[in-house]
């Protein structure tokens, strides 16, 4: 399952690679990283239909996570394929307003920082099993 992680913090890459080292090694998950919303869109355009899940920070300079979500939902709105990747939002602001807005825009899930990786892993595994 290919997952695109969007965050302006570079160390997120190291963190994810270590947290999911077993899953990566076993080939269950494969991660790609983008450091801004713009970069994420570019990546999606270049790797259409590969990415199944997007984990995006909300609060980033330039295009925000919510804006990214809106654009993805717009681009992949009309079925048939390519199917829309699921977008999961991760933010330091766990306020109801952001959550509501994200879900309204079609976010698959909404997580707050600090990220509970155990819970995240469970969710991803569930998702992966559905995928299969």
């Amino acid at each position: 399952m290919k997952i695109l992680v969007v965050d302006d913090e570079a160390d997120v890459r190291t963190l994810f690679e270590q947290r999911f080292r077993r899953e990566i090694r076993s080939g269950l998950f494969s991660f790609s990283f983008a450091y801004s919303g713009e970069e994420a869109l570019d990546y999606l355009h270049a790797h259409a239909s590969e990415v199944v899940l997007i984990l995006s920070d909300i609060n980033m300079p330039g295009m925000s996570g919510l804006e990214l979500l809106r654009q993805i939902k717009q681009e992949y709105a009309a079925p048939p394929p390519p199917p829309s990747p699921q977008v999961m939002m991760i933010t330091a602001y766990g306020d109801a307003e952001s959550r509501e807005q994200a879900l309204q825009l079609g976010a698959f899930d909404f997580l707050t920082k600090p990220v509970d990786f155990a819970a995240l892993k469970d969710k991803l595994l569930t998702l992966a099993s559905h995928e299969n």
Partner: peptide, 13 residues
């Protein structure tokens, strides 16, 4: 919040 997030997660990992 951001650096603390990393501190927590990197020590966990």
């Amino acid at each position: 919040q951001n650096p603390l997030n990393f501190v927590t997660n990197f020590s966990d990992v």
